[in-house]
Amino acid sequence: MIEPAGEVIFVESVTIKDTVIPKLGLGTWRLADKECRDMVLAALEDGWRHIDTAAMYANEAEVGKGIRSSGVPRDDVFLTTKVWYDKIAPEDMIRSCEDSLDRLGLDYADLILIHWPNPRIPLKESIEGLLELKARGWVKAIGVSNFTSGMMREAQGYAGGALVANQVEYHPLLSQKRVLEAAEELDMAITAYAPIARGRVSDVPVIRDIAKKHGKTEAQVALRWLIQQERVIAVPKTARRERLRENAGALTFELMPDEMDALFALGSASGRTVNMDWAPKWDSE
């Protein structure tokens, strides 16, 4: 079932400290050129107000064009970008952020993340770089990505509690129990990338049964499960407007407690679909 544009009101958000983050955002990994610009524009036209990009995606210029051409006031769009892991020494991070803003054609980012941890660069120094970006007014909020629960605690300690989010792979097939516990302890949000496990949720009987019961798709159920969790945001990526509207359907229904529990029960540490050579040693659950 795909709801037409105009029937979805994008009101669900999470507030961390003074940062309000829409619970559903458009991921732009692997979107490029006109396709990227057009999808960002389509999302904003349909009511989406959270766009996620990164320096490594090489599409910040197109994301910026989509935002500026939409006519949506800048302050109404929550824009996240990321600094690649080889640029997280303080001076490199400052240059990377400046370059990102130049490519985006924007005065500030709402949230900037360390894309991946880098053991060759002291984490304390990287966090100092993030704090400097915030002090300069180039970003409104700071966070991390692909950090384990232990790394979250260490980073938040260096940041004096200023970090608002950790973006990690998260979906019904991958348990992130320890990361979620750390987020609760540290007052951080969790942003879920690969939220439908690269389409694998469609092959899971439990998810199919719940989807059938609600008259929804398996992807909508997976996304609903994520954003129905108190501190969780989802940033599904798509290159098709019909899928964009399908994803927005996650905002139009609620799962029952027993359904939420059934989906939690599917998760394990082995459900990961993204595991780079430079990834940290992940939490065991």
Rank of each mutant, 00 (worst) to 15 (best):
K17T: 15
T148W: 01
D38R: 01
S202E: 09
E128S: 15
R243C: 11
W282I: 14
V77T: 01
V235C: 02
M1Q: 10
H214M: 03
I142H: 10
M188I: 04
A197F: 05
L174N: 02
A222P: 02
A43F: 07
W282V: 13
C36H: 05
E230G: 02
A192P: 08
V40H: 01
T191Q: 07
P172N: 07
I227A: 03
L223K: 15
V139M: 02
V206I: 13
L111R: 00
I94D: 04
G129R: 02
V206T: 14
A189C: 12
A248N: 08
E125W: 05
V40M: 03
T53W: 05
I207Q: 00
P257A: 09
V8I: 15
V232A: 03
D209G: 01
S145E: 03
L244G: 06
W116C: 14
I94R: 06
K177A: 12
P22Q: 13
V8H: 03
T217G: 11
L41Y: 09
T81E: 00
Q228T: 04
W282L: 15
H171C: 03
Y170M: 15
E91P: 12
I121R: 05
S70C: 13
R68A: 11
L44Y: 02
Q229R: 14
V40P: 07
Y170D: 05
K237W: 01
I94P: 00
V40I: 09
D99F: 04
Q156W: 00
I51L: 04
D75G: 13
R120T: 15
V77N: 01
S284Q: 11
L106T: 09
G105H: 02
P119K: 13
N166H: 09
K177Q: 05
E98Q: 07
I67Y: 00
L101Y: 00
G137D: 14
P172V: 01
E45D: 13
V83A: 11
G249H: 07
G199Q: 01
D277E: 10
V206A: 04
R208D: 11
M1E: 13
R241T: 14
P257V: 05
A89P: 12
V179A: 08
L31N: 08
A222L: 11
A42R: 09
V8W: 05
E98F: 07
I2F: 05
S145G: 02
L173V: 12
E169V: 13
K177V: 04
L174W: 00
M93R: 06
C36Y: 00
G267K: 09
F264G: 15
I114K: 08
D209N: 04
R243Q: 12
D187I: 14
T148P: 10
G267C: 12
I142P: 03
V235L: 05
T53F: 03
T15M: 12
R241S: 11
G143Q: 01
D86Y: 08
L174Q: 01
E62F: 10
A269Y: 01
D258F: 10
W278N: 13
K17L: 11
R68N: 05
Y158I: 12
A279T: 07
I227H: 04
A89S: 12
